[in-house]
Computed example of a mutant assay.
Amino acid sequence: MIMEWPVADAFWTPFLVAKDKGYYKDAGLDVTITPPPTVADTMKFLGTAQADMAFTTTLDVLFARDQDAPVVATGSYGGSNNWGLIAKAPFDLPQVKGKTVGIYNDAWSKAQLSLMLNSVGLKLSDVKLVTAADDTVPLLLQDKVDVITGVTNAESSEIRSTGGFDPFFMPARDHGAPNTPIFVVAGNTEWLKKNPDQARSFMAASIKGLDDAVQNPTAALEVFKKMYPSADMGFVTDAWNTTVGILKPQQPPFVQSDQQWEGLLKAAVDQGLVKSVGAPNTYWTNDYLPK
């Protein structure tokens, strides 16, 4: 299993618990959880069958499919979009005109910001973008920008754990962006077709790990700490506890639907990220989830 980030983060917790508790082993699987060399390599590993499964993003699956890569989402990690704008104090969206916005250099962040701005009659040119190499939080804490982009269980968690305060969060889903889950589990379609029973066993064992990690976050964090003792557990703890709140409402776990994908596909075309898209159900499948 290839992951979404070169360094272990709280999002990995369900899979780490499944491995630590022997759920994969009990299912007859030998699972190796591997970080990619860079954030751009996850889909390369999955698409070229160097990995069988992946933890990745919905947009990465869309981009990979646009390049005819043999990948498909086998489970959504939560049921909503928790990306948005983060600031030290509350603000109204029209007030960002002329302000500085810390952002990452990826197409989807700019696309979602553009959709938010469009909802109040603004454009990207109405704000000054300050690109962060790998973390927008320091830009905000050091007052180098007025607002940053991020998610509730990463950037907001980092601010709480390092900055010592609870930041203001404005959800993109409430201001013109699609309510599409950010993260998914995905599989190499060729491997899935050849190994359907193993794929179902993997998803079932992962669900056990997710259920345990959600029901007992403290024990799950001990597993994380055991596997990655050098991690910043203050940040990881806040991030996982926030993630639990995102995962709990999704029942049954990992289940997907056309509705989850439709907004993303439309936005990707409207924002010029891809020229065209297929039917929503060509990007995802529930076939490997427990019946």
Rank of each mutant, 00 (worst) to 15 (best):
A69W: 02
A51D: 09
V96N: 00
L16Q: 15
A89D: 13
T48G: 10
A69I: 00
D41Y: 03
P94D: 00
L16V: 07
T56G: 15
V96T: 01
T74C: 08
K97G: 05
Q95G: 07
K25G: 05
D106H: 14
M53Y: 09
Y23F: 06
G47E: 06
P14R: 06
V72R: 04
K44W: 13
G22P: 04
R65K: 11
W5N: 12
G75H: 06
A8T: 12
A64F: 02
V101R: 06
S80F: 11
I86Q: 00
N82C: 02
K44F: 14
T100W: 09
A27C: 02
T58S: 15
S114W: 01
R65G: 03
S109P: 01
D52V: 11
F11M: 07
Y24P: 02
T13K: 11
K44P: 15
A8F: 03
A40C: 00
A40Q: 03
A107C: 02
K97W: 03
T42N: 07
I2P: 11
D92I: 07
A111Q: 06
I33T: 03
S114V: 10
K88Q: 10
D26G: 04
L46N: 12
D66A: 09
P14S: 14
L113S: 04
A87C: 11
A27E: 05
G75T: 13
L85F: 07
P35D: 03
A107Q: 09
Q112N: 12
T32W: 03
M1F: 14
K110M: 10
M1Y: 00
D20C: 04
L113N: 00
Q50S: 13
Y23M: 00
V96M: 02
L62V: 15
V72A: 01
D30G: 11
D60E: 15
W83V: 10
V61T: 12
G78T: 08
A18G: 12
V31R: 05
G75S: 09
F15H: 02
V17H: 00
Y104C: 08
N105L: 12
A49S: 07
A49L: 01
V71H: 15
D68K: 00
I33G: 04
G78A: 05
T48M: 07
W5T: 15
S114L: 01
G79E: 04
V96R: 01
S114Q: 02
I2H: 09
L29G: 06
A87L: 08
D26F: 02
P36I: 00
W83C: 08
V31G: 05
T56I: 13
T34P: 00
F63W: 09
M53T: 13
A89Y: 08
T32C: 00
V61R: 09
D68L: 03
F45T: 05
Y77W: 07
A27I: 06
D20M: 06
S80W: 10
D9N: 14
T58H: 09
L85R: 10
Q112L: 06
L113C: 03
D20K: 06
F91A: 04
M1G: 01
P90H: 06
T48F: 15
A69N: 11
G22R: 05
P6I: 08
A8I: 07
M43G: 12
G98Y: 09
G98K: 05
F91Y: 01
L16K: 13
L46V: 12
P14G: 05
F45A: 07
